[in-house]
């Protein structure tokens, strides 16, 4: 067999070997490419490659450290499904909650990760098929339930054994409820898109450290939230927000698992505004704006007396 010499991103030359067995059993090009292994014996540089996987992802950010940890994603719509997909390379266990089924409209123009073959399935089951086939090692635990039917105690148990909860749904009453339930027990982030997908936001909630979701968005009751159903939006804008959400989520999870500091952003700022266009807040074009928030006096969730 002929071995190809390839140059890695760090400048090292290695001999590429293809695993024939894996190539046969995987007819998908991406999986076949992932099956390549590198023979490190002919490295020209003196420093060894720390990992035996296909690519050196960096000593400080080894995503395999997250493997096997549990996260909860509530909502398997546009943001929820794409965020789950972008989190999946970490080989985590994703508890996905959504009671709706994939419809034709969900498969159009890349609005979600679902394709036409998945129409009629529960979104959570469709996501399981899609994600687990793309990222072996990642487990999706489908929970096809309406969030308001799950009792508080069950949700809190689920939250407390997870390292992160991602809220990607827009039911106002349930957002208020989940904020109250999740704030004391687990780190969570809420991601959403605004009108026409021109912008989005990510709210980060860390128990006792940041203000809660209600204080950050200045929401007092469910009526303060307006949900936008079937809002027209550019799929690439949705994907942008989902990617940012996944990056923030990975950083928080990595920090918790490895007990390392978060260095990617200023953690005193728990609201990330994502501009997808040139606008007043981001006059030069798409960008991110990080802001801090204050606890409201007397907030029963994050500012209650001890």
């Amino acid at each position: 067999m002929k071995h190809k010499i390839v140059k890695l991103p760090n400048g090292k030359l290695v001999r590429q070997q293809q695993d024939d067995l894996l190539s046969v059993i995987t007819d998908i090009d991406v999986l076949a490419a992932a099956a390549f292994t590198y023979d490190n014996s002919i490295e020209s540089a003196s420093t060894p490659i720390p990992m035996n996987s296909s690519y050196n992802t960096g000593e400080n950010r080894n995503p395999q450290r997250l493997a096997g940890h549990d996260i909860v994603i509530i909502g398997a719509g546009a943001i929820g499904s794409y965020s789950a997909f972008f989190l999946a390379p970490a080989q985590i266990n994703i508890h996905l909650i959504d009671f709706k089924k994939v419809q034709f409209k969900h498969t159009q123009a890349g609005r979600t990760i679902y394709d036409g073959s998945l129409i009629g399935l529960y979104k959570v089951n469709a996501a399981k098929l899609k994600i687990e086939s793309s990222f072996p090692g990642t487990k999706v635990i489908p929970l096809p339930y309406n969030i308001d039917e799950i009792p508080d105690i069950e949700l809190q148990r689920l939250f407390s054994r997870s390292i992160l909860v991602l809220l990607a749904f827009d039911d106002p009453a349930q957002l208020i409820r989940i904020n109250k339930l999740a704030y004391p027990v687990v780190d969570f982030i809420q991601a959403a898109m605004h009108t026409a997908g021109l912008s989005g936001h990510i709210v980060i909630s860390i128990p006792l450290v940041t203000p809660c979701l209600s204080c950050t968005l200045d929401i007092k009751r469910a009526e303060d939230i307006q949900r936008l159903d079937s809002e027209p939006a550019n799929s690439w804008d949705i994907i942008n927000v989902a990617q940012q959400t996944a990056r923030i989520a990975i950083e928080i999870m990595y920090s918790k698992v490895t007990c390392s500091d978060i260095t990617r952003w200023d953690t005193s700022k728990n609201l990330i505004y994502i501009a997808n266009t040139k606008q007043q807040l981001s006059p030069d074009g798409p960008g991110l704006i990080y802001e801090n928030s204050q606890r409201r006096p007397g907030c029963p969730v994050c500012n209650s007396p001890p």
């Binding site: 827009d170 959403a192 009108t195 936001h201 949900r227 936008l228």
Partner: peptide
Amino acid sequence: VNRKELRSFF
């Protein structure tokens, strides 16, 4: 960022 504008979302 005007927080009130963040309350309309999907």
